[in-house]
Simulated scan of single mutants.
Amino acid sequence: MRDVTPPSPARDVATSNGRRTLAEEIAVALTYQGSTHAVMMASPTDLEEFAIGFSLSEGFITKTTDIESLEILPHPHGIEARLWLTAPRAAAMAARRRKMIGPVGCGLCGIDSLDAALRPLPNRSATAFMVSDRALLRAALALRGMQPLQDATRAVHAAAFIAPEGQILCLREDVGRHNALDKLIGALLDAGTDPANGAIMMTSRLSVDMIQKTAMAGTPVLCAVSAPTALAVEQAARAGITLACLAGPEKNRLDVFSCARRIITKAPDED
């Protein structure tokens, strides 16, 4: 975070000259086997977890032991996350290699074929996890008070991992919603937490790339404060993922778009 003093306001504009904390945004290069694969604009925090989560959601690894070494190194123009994978995973990565420059608002920039945009996803229909609508609503309410970077800057997204009872077990923030999700996935893997035993809640809209990352992680429920796209609903249904969002003027209702069997409906007095 960085504190700055805004310039003097234009005449007749109702504003102030007080100091303001801004979110940091920095170029992070992800390199594998000595070659740069992607450059993402991200918040310069939790970058090891970001590299792990990105590697899993891209299908380059399936577990942390697929990474032989991981270094976070300063660079004159940003930061490099340098990874070396085991030989089998390096070969698998080469089969799905893509180069992209990914600004914070786009998660599929620069892919080299249309097929890669809608790649086949693992099907999570058999995952037994279930959660009540009241638990997800409680988690959403708690989420608002657990985002220090957002409170300070009003400019970042959060991704949280939710237990069946609604507790927030892990949360990560970033200027990019995709990065926040990758950081969360990486944090879960690094801690040895099975992503299949909880739900993910996002503070952003749900587009198809968020479905892809969730499916790759193995999490069966994805919920957000904003509505999904039509393609996201279609892909979630195909991948066996329960997709939901907060709805209503007070965000006190849950709309479920796919695999609704995992959401247990409870009255407020049943908790």
Results as ranks from 00 to 15, higher is better:
S132H: 06
D133L: 09
A135N: 09
L136A: 03
L136K: 01
R138Y: 02
R138S: 10
A139R: 09
A140K: 07
A140I: 04
L141P: 01
L141I: 10
L141H: 11
G145D: 08
M146L: 04
M146Y: 01
Q147V: 06
P148I: 09
P148A: 09
P148C: 05
P148W: 09
L149W: 01
L149S: 02
L149G: 01
Q150E: 08
D151T: 07
D151I: 05
T153K: 15
T153S: 14
R154Y: 12
R154T: 08
A155E: 07
A155V: 00
V156D: 00
V156R: 01
A158V: 07
A159I: 02
A160E: 01
F161P: 05
F161E: 04
F161Y: 08
F161N: 04
I162F: 04
A163R: 15
A163W: 01
P164L: 00
P164V: 02
P164M: 01
E165G: 11
G166M: 03
I168F: 03
C170L: 01
C170M: 03
C170T: 05
C170Q: 04
E173D: 05
E173V: 12
D174Q: 06
D174R: 05
D174A: 10
D174M: 08
V175R: 10
G176Q: 00
R177I: 13
H178P: 01
H178M: 10
A180V: 04
D182Q: 15
D182E: 15
K183P: 05
L184D: 00
I185D: 08
I185W: 04
I185F: 08
G186A: 05
A187Y: 04
A187G: 14
L188W: 02
L188C: 04
L189C: 05
D190Q: 15
D190L: 13
A191L: 01
G192E: 02
G192C: 02
D194A: 12
A196V: 02
A196L: 01
G198N: 03
G198V: 06
A199I: 13
A199V: 14
A199F: 10
M201A: 11
T203L: 12
R205S: 07
R205M: 04
R205L: 02
L206D: 07
L206T: 15
D209F: 14
D209W: 14
D209A: 15
M210Q: 11
M210E: 11
I211P: 06
I211N: 08
I211H: 08
Q212F: 00
Q212C: 01
Q212K: 02
Q212A: 06
K213H: 12
T214D: 07
T214Q: 12
T214A: 15
A215G: 11
A215T: 11
A215N: 10
A215Q: 12
A217M: 02
G218S: 08
P220Y: 10
P220K: 11
V221G: 13
V221C: 15
V221Q: 12
C223D: 14
C223G: 09
A224P: 09
V225Y: 12
A227G: 05
A227F: 06
P228A: 10
L231S: 14
V233T: 07
V233H: 00
E234F: 14
E234H: 15
E234Y: 13
Q235T: 14
Q235F: 10
Q235D: 05
Q235A: 12
A236I: 12
A236K: 13
A237S: 15
A237V: 08
